[in-house]
Design a protein around this nucleic acid. Structure first.
Length: 364
RNA sequence: CGGGGCGUAGCGUAACGGCUAACGCACUUGGUUUGGGACCAAGGGACUCCGGGUUCGAAUCCCGGCGCCCCGACCA
């Protein structure tokens, strides 16, 4: 890519109003543009990085047998009434000019569960898992922290379907491992902890993946012996202890929730009467798990963690380009050589951003 | 949704209730430059967020709205 043709310019000054580190750096660098609070356009540079994060996630999801699909963002009111979640605050609702109501998906159990039911009958169809990477909408009362908490954002959500609890447990652990592989590839593994958190209305615990960062809105307590953490929200009697080894000497940190996984079990399959026929021809309830991970939020976390006075330092695996070719000076020989190198890198299919602009070295 | 701050050119800012709303960056043209955000000259670009009000006169004061940022609440 010739930088002279690159859409989206860097910005030298940004309003002091914009205090979030990731928002400042991403906007200044021409990676994103803010349309409104919590709603961003991904410009060519930013989108390249976002796509790389997505593809790393896809690789790991595919490896554990997840099949990619794409569900609608527009949601059917009826299905959300079945699960009693139509009137939850985070749901954005729209009403058409002729009065029909729709919701915008902030999660997809209400689509995934009936879909799973429609396509299966017998135990032979199980287990299976599908996932999507898709835009989610959440009616955040207050969007904040740049791309970390938006009203519209990208989420990878994986849903798994099982005939028994052991199988669900096994898959749950498999997903956990896959998540850490993703974190490793994008460079945040050493700061990310499997964290015990509230299980909402369907189980005692869920597990979050919390990345230690000053910009985090969650407080976690890390057990350095076990390498896991517990979210402050479920600490009882003000005395955090490790859920595994009962260690009470834990380290308090601010952290950002990178992902969250749940054993839904029968919460949604019961609501939609999702059953299967077992080996003896008896009907049994399907058990489900769901596993979320936010590509756009991951991008924000990475920016928060990898930067210095000069700007963002992308990990190589997700940098928008592998090579930034920057010829300095006006010497014709330099220019010619740069063109030659550019052509050869392109031929080798090495991602290169070529700063062919007629600018001074400082600007470049 | 409660509290606080803010809204002026593409971006960042300035302007006592009073001249044609100023400056820096960016942009256009010409020239000089070229190893760490160059210089000179000439330009273009603003319904001062929107709607009311006070006043001889409003970017400036008052009321209402909208928007942005921060804190809190919220975030199955």
């Amino acid at each position: 890519m010739r930088q002279s043709k690159l859409f989206g310019k860097t910005i030298r000054e940004i309003s002091k109003d914009e205090q979030s580190v990731n928002a400042q750096l991403l906007i200044k660098g021409g990676f994103v543009d803010k349309l409104m609070a919590g709603v961003y356009t991904y410009l060519p540079l930013g989108l390249r990085t976002l796509r790389k994060i997505e593809n790393i996630i896809r690789e790991e999801m595919d490896t554990i047998g997840g099949q990619e699909i794409l569900m609608p963002a527009l949601q059917n009111k009826k299905d959300w009434e079945i699960t009693n979640r139509w009137n939850i605050d985070v749901m954005m609702k729209i009403k058409t000019s002729f009065g029909k109501e729709y919701g915008l998906g902030w999660t997809h159990e209400e689509v995934a569960t009936p879909l799973g039911k429609k396509c299966t009958k017998s135990y032979k169809d199980f287990p299976f898992a599908f996932y999507q990477i898709q835009t989610k909408f959440r009616n955040e009362k207050r969007a904040k922290s740049g791309i970390l908490r938006g009203r519209e954002f990208l989420m990878k959500d994986l849903y798994s379907f099982h005939t028994n609890e052991e199988d669900l447990d096994k898959y749950y652990d498999l997903v956990t491992d896959a998540y850490f592989k993703i974190f490793e590839k994008i460079g945040i593994k050493n700061k990310t902890y499997l964290t015990y958190a509230s299980g909402g209305d369907f189980s005692r615990y869920s597990h979050e993946f919390q990345t230690v960062a000053g910009a985090g809105e969650d407080t976690i307590y890390i057990c350095e012996k076990c390498g896991i953490a517990i979210n402050k929200e479920i600490v009882e009697n003000n005395q955090p202890e490790c859920p595994k080894c009962k260690n009470e000497n834990l380290k308090e940190e601010k952290a950002i929730e990178a992902g969250n996984i749940f054993k839904l079990k029968n919460r949604f399959s019961d609501a939609f009467d999702f059953k299967f026929l077992d080996e003896s021809g008896k009907e049994k309830t399907v058990l489900m798990g769901c596993y979320g991970l936010g590509p756009t939020r991951l991008m924000g976390i990475i920016v928060e963690k990898y930067n210095d006075k000069n700007g963002i330092i992308w990990p190589k695996s997700i940098a928008p380009y592998q090579v930034h070719l920057v010829p300095l000076g006006k010497d014709d020989k330099v220019k010619k050589e740069a063109e030659r190198i550019y052509a050869s890198l392109q031929k080798e299919k090495i991602e290169v951003l070529y700063d062919d602009r007629d600018e001074s070295p400082g600007v470049k």
